[in-house]
């Protein structure tokens, strides 16, 4: 067991019904994490929308891009989301599996293309499952 002191301020857990939460801290670091909300089961051949809640503590504006490593049988529709600088925004992307299967996909969220360094919490892996 671990002592889990509640995080505060910029880095606290995001209260959301979306399965993914992106936080941008005051230093414009992008973090992404699974929330407690379920992803659900996909139907083969049908697009499934995954909601993303963005909490922006960095006043960052401009594109929030999502990148993914290719996974056989998985199609991704990853539109670039426009950050307005608002503290909380809703975003979404779509996934489709060709056939009943289970895949593990790694997604990377990027804002401010020039940032590198420690922006290494911006990756999350998702288990996607499709059943008839």
């Amino acid at each position: 067991m671990t002592h889990q002191a509640p995080a505060i301020g910029c880095c606290g857990p995001v209260d959301t019904d979306a399965p993914l939460a992106v936080t941008i801290n005051p230093e414009a670091r992008v973090n992404v994490a699974r929330s407690g909300a379920p992803i659900g089961t996909l139907k083969p051949g049908e697009w499934h929308t995954l909601a993303v809640t963005v909490v922006n503590d960095g006043f960052v504006t401009g594109p929030l891009a999502v990148e993914a490593e290719p996974v056989s049988g998985l199609q991704l529709d990853l539109p670039v989301h426009e950050l307005t600088g608002e503290h909380r925004q809703d975003a979404a992307f779509r996934v489709r599996l060709d056939a009943p299967t289970v895949v593990d996909v790694t997604l990377t969220f990027r804002a401010l293309g020039a940032l590198g360094g420690l922006a290494n919490h911006s990756t999350v892996n998702l288990l996607l499952s499709a059943r008839e």
């Binding site: 505060i8 301020g9 880095c11 801290n25």
Partner: peptide, 9 residues
């Protein structure tokens, strides 16, 4: 603060 401190106080 920053990415290393999830309890940044």
């Amino acid at each position: 603060g920053c990415s290393h401190y999830n309890v940044p106080s």
